[in-house]
Nucleic acid binder design. Structure first.
Lengths: 325, 325
DNA sequence: GGAAGTTCTGCAACCGGTTGCACGAAACAT
DNA sequence: ATGTTTCGTGCAACCGGTTGCAGAACTTCC
């Protein structure tokens, strides 16, 4: 089997504690000894066993990352960035998918708790109370949900919504629909609040809707009934679905109706017309979340929760145009 | 801190070993005692510490899942399925992204080795020799690469390529280009072998190319130079990029050139024209891989490597049409 | 030359579980 | 009544590291 610390100790004629220190506190051991130990360790292919180390130190050097749906194209860049960033700091990442089920989410967190130093919760579906309860056991960073007393990374989707609406009003649109997301989504509420705050427009809020292509497709009828010239959708998938639905009914985008999405997923750049959208700083969010979490982990219970708000920006492509005459 | 096995033992007036058995070998303990212990455990919120358990049993109940690029839309469904399937069997999954870098891949596997019972390697970029070497330390299942003596899940992309080519020939195409993927990709070689085996066509193999939208875009010129009427691309991303590149040059798809992709990613259903493509059984692959891996883990070194080949099928949409006159 | 530091290493307990072994009590057979 | 099983539980060693404490060897300073 794989070499243990005792094999190395024996082979290099020192006590196990010296070998241990060679790896976890090198400055405490004589350079000469250290080199000898390192040489032997290298020779035997020894690598410290993280699970064993975790047992005494209480630090697993693992993080948990929980998302509602890995297949939603919004998440992979975040996961990727978080994972890469964590790796640089010598942390591994468990990724778990809750399938949008709060029950699963809770179980997952509970079984993961003992194995990680902290958990990244992305767009959680759990209630605030449940999250607060669970956070007694393990540090959390929440992404895309405001939760007092907890470290949080927010993407300023309110800003994005305002930019989008302003872009539309600049094009002459006055009657605008907001295609809302799932009920209870923080993001969705944030968007409608921001949109309502823009003066001089006539806003129709439609929803809640499923945050998928299909949800957008299904909403086409409601959009037409609302008699608007422009739509801001909860996310790109819905926007794409909506364009499809409008197309089926012979409504041109952006000729008759302009459409704006949110997320800037890859697909949005590939559809015709190319989607005007609010770009989310997902990679930055992943990295920031890991930073905040490690900060929390390092600080122990004395931690002050931090709040990071990341700016969003509007990407103007081909799905928006001047209001028809 | 969280309750340990000793807390439970004390509170229920039995020895720690009895508590341990209550969880890991219930049949060995008197039902009455067991219930008492369980009640106390429940009361104290006790959950067994997996890391500690791993130390003695040698089973971590964790799996590693290594992919080249989480952001490539081909992977998330596989990750999702694998992760969900593993969870049902009480396994957690580390997901790591190598950024297509063999070096990173190797390091990742090495640091993960001690923490997992087995590793799922998806479309590895490492050399066969390196993989064989690493497999001495931990069981592997390789997805999308044939490796003798190792458990393997293959998606029959050769079949897919043949179906695609036959579809094209049925439409009258004779001069067909194959847009290859990265050098050293098993999938890519498999596709060209299968394509070459189809009689009666004039096949141009173009590549290697980067397996991204940009790679497809960049290949547009080469495709035109090859003077073909149809193209089979290594994957959907490239196919979409290619359609884009052709469009920029005023070449209609499928009017002048037909294009077929591989993977059936969501984006392919959203582009205009909708992409004809070879659908890959990614979810099934994820589940099968987990099954094979756990089988291997259970069997110890006596394991016989297994090979699972999953069928692919062709989805005909709008990017292919009859050969132009 | 002796006291007071430094620096390095060893000892042993500990982290939170698991498990082979032994032993006492109850159940069964003779 | 005695001998043999079976069952349930306790004991203690062990998994592979970490770490507080103690002491040996070597400096440094008066």
């Amino acid at each position: 089997m794989a070499a243990t610390i005792r094999d190395v100790a024996q082979a290099s004629g020192v006590h196990v504690s010296t070998v241990s220190r060679t790896f976890s506190a090198p400055h405490l051991v004589n350079p000469e000894t250290r080199n000898r130990v390192l040489a032997v360790a290298e020779d035997l292919g020894y690598r410290p066993n993280r699970a064993a180390r975790a047992l005494t130190t209480g630090r697993t050097h693992n993080l948990g990352l929980i998302v509602a749906d890995i297949s939603n194209p919004f998440f992979p860049p975040l996961i990727k960035a978080a994972q890469a960033h964590a790796r640089l700091r010598d942390y591994h990442v468990f990724v778990a998918d809750t399938d949008e089920d709060p029950q699963v989410e809770e179980e997952l967190i509970q079984t993961l708790t003992k194995q990680v130093d902290g958990v990244l919760l992305c767009s959680p579906r759990l209630s605030n109370r449940a999250i607060e309860k669970l956070s007694e056991d393990v540090p959390f960073v929440v992404v895309n949900r405001r939760l007092k007393g907890m470290s949080t990374v927010l993407m300023d989707v309110g800003l994005g919504a305002r930019l989008a609406i302003e872009h539309l009003t600049a094009l002459g649109h006055r009657r605008i629909a907001l295609l809302a997301g799932p009920a209870g989504s923080w993001t969705s509420r944030e968007m409608s609040d921001a949109a309502r705050a823009v003066a001089g427009i006539d806003l129709a809020i439609l929803g809640p809707n499923s945050p998928t292509e299909h949800g957008g497709l299904a909403a086409a009828e409601a959009v037409l009934a609302a008699d608007v010239t422009a739509v801001l959708a909860y996310n790109d998938l819905m926007a794409i679905g909506l364009v499809e639905g409008l197309d089926e009914r012979g409504i041109e985008v952006p000729g008759r109706i302009s459409v704006v999405g949110v997320d800037d997923i890859v697909s949005g750049r590939l559809t015709r017309p190319k989607l005007t959208t609010v770009a989310m700083p997902t990679e930055a969010a992943g990295r920031t979340a890991v930073d905040l979490l490690l900060q929390l982990v390092g600080a122990g219970q004395t931690a002050t929760p931090a709040l990071a708000t990341l700016a969003t920006h509007l990407i103007i492509r081909d799905s928006t145009g001047p209001v028809p005459p």
